[in-house]
Computed example of a mutant assay.
Amino acid sequence: MTNTARTTLHDLADAGVSVWLDDLNRPMISSGELQSYVDRGVLGVTTNPTIFASALAEGDAYSEQVRELAADGADVDDAVFALTTDDVRDACDVLRPVYDRTDGVDGRVSIEVDPGAAKDTERTVQIAQQLWETIDRPNLFIKIPATVEGLPAITQTLASGISVNVTLIFSLDRYRGVMNAYLTGLEQAREQGRDLSAIHSVASFFVSRVDGEIDSRLEEIGTDEALALRGRAGLANARLAYQAFEEVFGTPRWQNLADDGARLQRPLWASTGVKNPDYQDTMYVTGLVAPHTVNTMPGKTLEATVDHAELQGDTVTGTYEEAQQVLDDLERVGVSYAEVVEQLENEGVDKFEKSWSELLGTVQDELDKAEGSK
């Protein structure tokens, strides 16, 4: 039976927060589990190389397709491309009614470019184009990391009419660069005569990883003043990002694009699963409620939100002075914000590259088995 009862996810949507699920695998699609999430109020799906690596390593849901690919002589790169794009295309079809109902704002499914291209602008653009054409669904988002090399790739991809989920954003300076890349992409798209209303984007600002790294540094320092700052940096950083969002999307430059049909690039809160069990498991949900935002949650966080999250309205707007004070206090006790966010970006890219390598290895093993069984 379809569960259409109202949940906390619907309450978040009313507050301006679109809840997306940070997970996807083939059994989830074929069993109707993904549809049940949508019925409960999930409005989108995000994926990444780690999620795909886990999906393909478990069970035999992909075995038949792997055997067919092996019979066709596919190499491992072609096989991974086929397996992942098929899942995302099917998920796009499940989410399509949400996309239609929300005029393209939600109902989105994200797939990431090969993380090995994170430092290669032109290759990123080429892969984005290939993914967009292969999946061939209007509610697709191409995920591009917000590296220095990724920024021009984001602009070029948007300018060609492809919707982009910018990922792995940790620093406020880089986030401003991401918003500039978005506006520049829209301006170039307009020069090419494209329909700006058809180009969408979100900017994925990571939250819990900031606390994870900063908390460990605070514990090394060990003073009462340092320890009192644990668990505060992630929310503060994200709230200041929202302040930057309000500023940039309140400028004449943006208004000029909006007058021609452009859509907001919404902030997306990513990495919202709590890493420290001492913290409230919904803190990165209830603490980041604001209009025009997305919160992408792993299943565990989503279930906790539905079960016991206590919403308190907008918890972001108007908190900027307090948030800035947290970052100032961190610097005063000896934690370098610039050093932390640079480290987190590098680790983020490395983590996804490692997951991608594991994914390739898993699929290669399956291809070898299929070859051996002929």
Rank of each mutant, 00 (worst) to 15 (best):
M28Q: 14
T305Q: 15
I154F: 06
L360A: 05
G116H: 11
G231D: 14
D87P: 10
V88R: 04
M297A: 01
R239P: 02
T102N: 04
N237M: 05
I144P: 09
N3G: 14
A117Y: 07
G299H: 02
G273Q: 09
D90M: 05
Q325D: 10
N295S: 14
D224K: 11
P27Q: 06
A82P: 01
S271M: 12
D72Y: 06
E247F: 01
R101E: 12
S163G: 07
C92T: 02
S36L: 10
K369I: 04
L21M: 07
M1H: 13
Q280D: 15
S355P: 01
S197T: 14
D75L: 11
Q156Y: 02
D278P: 06
A370I: 08
P138Q: 09
G222T: 15
D259N: 13
F206Q: 03
S373A: 11
L311Y: 14
G348W: 03
V335S: 04
E358G: 03
S271P: 09
L196N: 05
T155Y: 03
Q156S: 15
E187Y: 11
P152S: 07
C92I: 03
Y284F: 14
L327E: 01
S31H: 05
G185Q: 11
D281Y: 06
E187P: 13
E353K: 04
D215E: 07
L257D: 01
G231T: 13
T251M: 02
Q280L: 03
I162R: 02
D77G: 06
S31C: 05
G104V: 03
N139Q: 05
F52Q: 04
V285S: 10
R96P: 00
D260L: 13
Q280V: 09
I51W: 01
N276P: 14
A146T: 12
T85R: 14
S355W: 01
Q364M: 10
T147K: 00
V98Y: 05
P27G: 07
T50L: 10
W356I: 01
P252D: 14
N180S: 13
T124I: 01
L367E: 06
G250M: 08
V210P: 08
A198S: 15
E339C: 05
I169A: 09
K351P: 00
E219Y: 02
D136L: 08
F170C: 06
I144R: 00
G161C: 09
L229D: 00
Q188C: 04
K143Y: 13
P27L: 07
D314C: 15
H292I: 03
G234T: 08
A338N: 11
L330S: 03
G185E: 12
D100P: 00
G116M: 04
A159G: 15
R266G: 08
V316Y: 13
A117N: 06
D329R: 12
N25Y: 08
D120F: 00
D106F: 07
G348V: 03
A61F: 03
V335A: 04
R26M: 10
L229Q: 02
K351C: 00
D87I: 12
K275F: 15
A70N: 04
A203W: 00
F141R: 00
F249N: 00
D136N: 12
L12Q: 09
